[in-house]
Computed example of a mutant assay.
Amino acid sequence: MDESNAKRKQAHMAWMDRWRRKTTCHLRKWISKHGHDVQRQILNGMAFKLGSGAVSLLILWAQSRF
């Protein structure tokens, strides 16, 4: 019984290793192609949120002032 469980565990580990290798390879290729686009989108999103927050603060300041 123990040998059967050990074989199953090894087969499962081998399957997981293949899946992990395949996924890692795919992600590396995707990042090399699209990495700059993702970084640019993140920076654009951060700038948009920062600008939106600044405008909101200006509006609140103007409302409280006048």
Rank of each mutant, 00 (worst) to 15 (best):
V55F: 07
G35F: 03
T24P: 00
I31F: 12
K29D: 11
I31G: 07
I31P: 05
M16H: 03
Q39S: 13
F66K: 11
L60S: 12
R21I: 02
H12N: 05
D37C: 09
H36W: 11
N44F: 10
N5Q: 14
L50M: 12
H34P: 01
M1A: 11
R20V: 00
N5G: 06
M16Q: 08
S56V: 03
G53N: 15
A62I: 02
R21D: 15
T23D: 07
R21K: 13
D2M: 09
L43I: 04
W61I: 11
W61H: 11
K29N: 10
A6P: 00
T24W: 02
L43G: 01
L58Q: 12
Q10H: 08
I31L: 14
N44L: 15
M1T: 06
H12F: 04
L50V: 12
W30D: 04
A47V: 01
Q41V: 02
R21G: 04
A6G: 01
Q10Y: 06
A62C: 05
F66I: 11
H36K: 08
N5M: 15
A11P: 00
V55P: 02
C25K: 11
I31E: 12
Q10L: 14
R40K: 11
A6I: 02
K9T: 01
N5A: 15
S52P: 01
L43E: 09
S32W: 04
H26T: 02
K9Y: 03
H26S: 03
H34I: 00
K9A: 03
A11K: 02
T23R: 11
Q63V: 05
E3F: 07
I42A: 03
K29G: 03
H34T: 02
W30V: 03
N44P: 03
A6N: 06
W61R: 13
L50K: 15
D37A: 14
K7E: 03
S56Q: 15
R21P: 00
